[in-house]
């Protein structure tokens, strides 16, 4: 993690991911409200389309990135001891990566 990159870029990524999460969320919600798939097969069909796979994966990645910046911000604000902060951030990073891999595995198989 380069120290230089983490000011403006972090903030900008947080904003960009927020926009994507918002847009995709609206699409997901409105689809479910208007024409929710009624059977498992319909669900599967909906989510196995290549466009849907990629956009959903991006959605998950956006949430992870957004969470990373947000929680990192909280750590920077309140967790002063460098060792504690580093281990917290490391744990956070590991769990976010795990979530990401799990999502990828689900979406790409």
């Amino acid at each position: 993690m380069s120290r230089k990159a983490s000011g403006f870029k972090a903030w900008a990524w947080q904003r960009i991911t927020a926009v994507y999460i918002g847009l995709f969320g609206v699409y997901l919600l409105s689809s479910l409200l208007c024409a929710a798939p009624e059977t498992y097969t319909a669900w599967q069909a909906w989510f196995t389309g290549p466009v849907m796979r990629v956009t959903t994966l991006l959605f998950v990645l956006a949430i992870l990135l957004h969470a990373w910046v947000g929680i990192r911000d909280i750590c920077i604000d309140y967790v002063k001891p460098i060792a504690v902060r580093a281990s917290l951030l490391l744990m956070l990073a590991l769990s976010l990566i795990l979530y990401g891999l799990w999502a990828a595995q689900l979406l790409l198989r």
């Binding site: 983490s6 972090a10 604000d77």
Partner: peptide, 12 residues
Amino acid sequence: QLEDPYKMFRCH
């Protein structure tokens, strides 16, 4: 100069 996680981006 403001490109740093603290100087400005601590504003919430």
